[in-house]
Design a protein around this nucleic acid. Structure first.
Lengths: 208, 208
DNA sequence: AAGCTAATGACAGCCACTGACAGTTGACAA
DNA sequence: TTGTCAACTGTCAGTGGCTGTCATTAGCTT
């Protein structure tokens, strides 16, 4: 962030992202055109596409910050932890540190609102899920390395991540459609659902 | 399928689907335009969009048949089975009956090729994953009803489906990128991965 | 055969996105 | 300071997915 040029670029990107999120969360994703965003920042449409790979990319940029943080957190977990526990702690850490990560661009409330937009907009949800799949692949490799396994020969890391990821996406869904849309609620749901994963595999739920 | 009109409509739809799959699997999804498909069937582009909600819809239509079959299979599973077991059996049944379901439109080989296209085309994979999420919601409701639970009050059905779905999507991924692209391989992977889900939750993989 | 209705084709138009090229503006050395 | 280079931007033209509209065609009904 040394030169004036770099600062200018950063400002343009931030402005585009801020405006995009603002419009997406108020007017709605589909009701916002790229031209709208570009016009509001007073740049050409072409410039928007130089900063973001597409409209989707801008909509998922904030979430991307937290994803990157999550991956880092898994990498930094103490090696003695079991894989599931490492992922669980990393995710909880991630939610704790959201504030510091996102706040430099938009207030956390905006981030949360954007999350709802993603979950309620089909095309965004689809893109989000695809990226989650990529993240799962990354995490599987991290875990395999931690445990000294070959990720392609031993399916266990991928299975573990798949189970974890499945529960997490379901948690996101429930959270974003539920009444309590706070970070505390997210933490509570995460812990609760992960704790139930074990019994879900084996138990019969009927009382008799 | 009584009137001539209905038969004609069916034939047009089948022709569009066949041509679409043919082009997608040979030329590639992105390299095929809707105009190409419409031209090959000798209808207007507008007509294509009257039969399919979009290009994606045509690409996922075959998979949609198997999904519908899977949901039915879960519904028909004997009530005494535990939820996980019911889903597992339903999925295996589904693969067994693919032939009879798909063959009336395209040969099974085409179906399998289309599967690879979906997994290797980002936008299609995204759409596929989103639809899988919808399927999971449906299955969660089916299971809840089976077990006499309120799906909104008791998260266990959704947790179980999330775990199952996570493993299944990971299985699809591994299958479609692996060497053995046969139905037998799919069955083997499915069983193997599901069997490992339990230990993935608790175990530590290191040998010491 | 005549009238109704569903299906289609033929436009026109919006929007996301891309390539190409020219103009502008910081960076950096002479 | 100035001149040169490289990076950044705007403009324009074009492609492709998708939609609304309306006139035309073709099957159904009586």
């Amino acid at each position: 962030m040394e030169t004036l040029r770099e600062r200018k670029k950063q400002r343009t990107r931030d402005a585009l992202l801020r405006v995009a999120v603002e419009l997406f969360t108020t007017r709605g994703y589909e009701q916002t055109t790229v031209d709208d965003i570009a016009a509001a920042v007073d740049v050409s449409q072409r410039t928007f596409f130089r900063y973001f790979a597409g409209k989707e990319d801008a909509a998922l940029a904030l979430d991307g910050l937290t994803v990157a943080r999550f991956i880092e957190a898994v990498r930094e977990r103490p090696p003695h932890e079991a894989p599931m526990e490492a992922m669980r702690q990393a995710v909880l850490e991630g939610w704790d540190s959201i504030n510091g990560i996102v706040e430099s661009v938009v207030p956390v409330e905006q981030f949360l609102r954007m999350y709802r937009v993603i979950e309620s907009t089909p095309v965004l949800l689809a893109a989000h899920l695809r990226r989650s799949a990529e993240v799962e692949e990354t995490i599987a490799r991290v875990l395999a390395e931690r445990e000294g396994l070959d990720v392609d020969a031993d399916p266990r890391p991928r299975v573990a991540v798949a189970v974890f990821g499945g529960v997490m996406r379901m948690t996101e869904r429930r959270w974003s459609t539920g009444a309590d849309f706070s970070l505390d609620a997210m933490r509570a749901l995460t812990v609760s659902h992960l704790d139930q994963a074990g019994s879900a595999l084996t138990e019969n739920w009927r009382t008799h």
